[in-house]
């Protein structure tokens, strides 16, 4: 399944680039992420609990950052597997300054297998969009300094 889109963040490009690669930020913002532990150069082990209403599943996986081109672009590779199936995502993130903030464009492919793909195809499109939205919502929220 192909996914693409963009999201405007209220941060400058370099801040944005750093935030998107900061494991503590990713841990906080990736939907369902329980822990993100560095296991090597640009590679992290991830535990996540995917939850969508009644549907839930634990995934063990890996997050890898590649093809860094500061502060313009990088690739994010995510894979995880659990009892209810597996998922594998490969996306290119491109950052461009826009209206004083930064537009984060993403384009990639998500592969899903196992029970979730066999019985959940009609919700796949909606769910992936929702997850991406939640990620950016959290990101925007966590990066915006609290208003006094």
């Amino acid at each position: 399944m192909k996914i693409s889109g963009s999201r405007l963040l209220d941060l400058d490009q370099e801040q944005c680039y750093r935030a998107l690669q900061d494991p503590s930020v990713l841990e906080r913002c990736m939907p369902g992420c329980r822990s993100l532990v560095r296991v090597g150069e640009d590679t992290y082990a991830m535990k996540m609990k995917m939850a969508l209403a009644s549907i839930s599943g634990l995934f063990d996986g890996k997050v890898r950052i590649a093809d860094r081109n500061f502060p313009h672009s990088f690739r994010l590779l995510v894979e995880g597997s659990g009892r209810i199936g597996f998922l594998k995502g490969d996306g290119l993130l491109q950052l461009t300054p826009e209206n004083g903030g930064t537009s984060v464009g993403y384009e990639g492919e998500v592969r899903v297998g196992g029970t979730i793909s066999a019985v959940g195809q009609r919700l796949m499109d909606t769910t992936s969009k929702m997850m991406i939205k939640r990620f950016f919502d959290k990101l925007a929220e966590s990066l915006t300094p609290p208003q006094q």
Partner: peptide, 14 residues
């Protein structure tokens, strides 16, 4: 009608 099928498929495990 929704919860039981999800539980049988183990997509839901309350």
């Amino acid at each position: 009608m929704s919860l039981i099928p999800l539980m049988k498929l183990r997509l839901s495990a309350p």
